[in-house]
């Protein structure tokens, strides 16, 4: 199948900061690629280049087969962008916002209005459509923003952290909406900081850090690389970390990681609660004083810890 989004060797620098450092990516037609990484990893920069908002310092990119540098306008006709900041006008109503976007896609007055009505219906905003957006909840704004990205029914959609800042309920609602869209055959590039979100929505996940791809695969592939579950033990005395590691080594299905500063040992396991019980027993046998213990699903931090050996980079300014 053809790739509707393709980038190779993208580089973008802002003064001393290298936001992208030779990023390659490809999204097959009709599929969803999740671009996963911490703040400052370069996700938004990558999307901005693909959506023609920024020019790369080096490298090339094609969207829907069109070069983003030489024919940005033709690219814009074929993409929808929904960003981290709901890009809607608060003083206009939901309906007016969508009509405005439709007219700027040159749909014509009549079609723009019809399309706005359809999308409000589809996004469960029909009732609120006549109210100014400033009366909307955060989740409603995000849905409206997403609807704006779909006005021209573009073949390629960029979703830049679509659920950042939403409460869990709003997040789940938005996931439903996105899943519905993807069912319609749209090609999607989604950025997120949440492993769970990528897991829920993406066919393939590309993990990036410091502007570079560090791993790619399906959610299952990535998880199997880092272990599906982990036991996290915090010991009372830092000197007990090594004995704890030894005590739990036989349960580990992957590499164990110990962090001296937080006196925490992470052991990837398979088997769930019974294994946790056995592990606790083992620690008790070894007379290791435990302050805190838990069975956790892997998080983005675990992915990073495993793939890069460091915890996800601290937030950077200018994000």
């Amino acid at each position: 199948m053809a790739n509707l989004v393709e980038a190779s060797g993208l580089v973008k620098r802002y003064r001393e900061v290298t936001a992208l450092d030779g990023l390659d990516l490809a999204v097959a037609e009709g599929s969803v690629l999740g671009l996963l990484g911490p703040n400052g990893a370069g996700k938004t920069t990558a999307v901005s280049i693909l959506a023609t908002l920024l020019e790369p310092d080096a490298g090339s990119a094609r969207v829907a087969g069109i070069d983003v540098r030489s024919r940005p306008r033709d690219v814009r006709r074929r993409i929808g962008l929904s960003g981290q900041f709901a890009a809607v006008d608060e003083h206009l109503t939901g309906f007016e916002n969508l009509v405005m976007v439709g007219r700027l896609y040159h749909l014509g007055r009549h079609r723009a209005r019809a399309r706005a009505g359809e999308l409000l219906e589809l996004f469960d905003l029909a009732e609120a459509g006549g109210r100014p957006v400033k009366t909307y909840s955060g989740g409603m704004r995000r849905r409206l923003d997403l609807a704006g990205a779909l006005v021209a029914a573009p073949p390629v959609l960029f979703l830049d952290e679509p659920t950042t800042g939403l409460d869990p309920q709003g997040r789940r609602q938005l996931w439903e909406v996105i899943r519905g869209m993807v069912g319609g055959g749209t090609t999607v590039l989604l950025t997120t900081q949440y492993l769970e979100e990528a897991d829920q929505l993406a066919d393939r996940i590309l993990v990036i850090d410091h502007g570079r791809a560090i791993a790619e695969g399906t959610a299952d592939e990535l998880k199997s690389r880092i272990g599906a579950e982990r036991i996290e033990v915090t010991v009372t005395d830092g000197a007990a970390l090594e004995p704890a590691r030894a005590a739990l080594a036989r349960f580990a299905v992957g590499e164990q990681l110990a962090d001296g500063r937080s006196r925490t040992l992470i052991t990837p396991i398979a088997g769930g609660a019974p294994v946790l019980a056995a592990a606790l027993h083992e620690l008790a046998q070894a007379h290791i004083a435990v302050r805190d213990v838990g069975l956790r699903r892997p998080t983005l931090d675990d992915v990073f810890l495993t793939l890069t050996g460091h915890v996800s980079a601290p937030e950077e300014n200018g994000q």
Binding site: A51, T52, L81, G83, A87, V88, D89, L104, D145, G148
Partner: peptide, 17 residues
């Protein structure tokens, strides 16, 4: 500030509009 300019910049509208 509100980010809506990025919506406009990603639309196929005239650059001066």
């Amino acid at each position: 500030q509100k980010g809506i300019i990025n919506r406009f910049r990603a639309l196929p509208m005239s650059r001066s509009a």
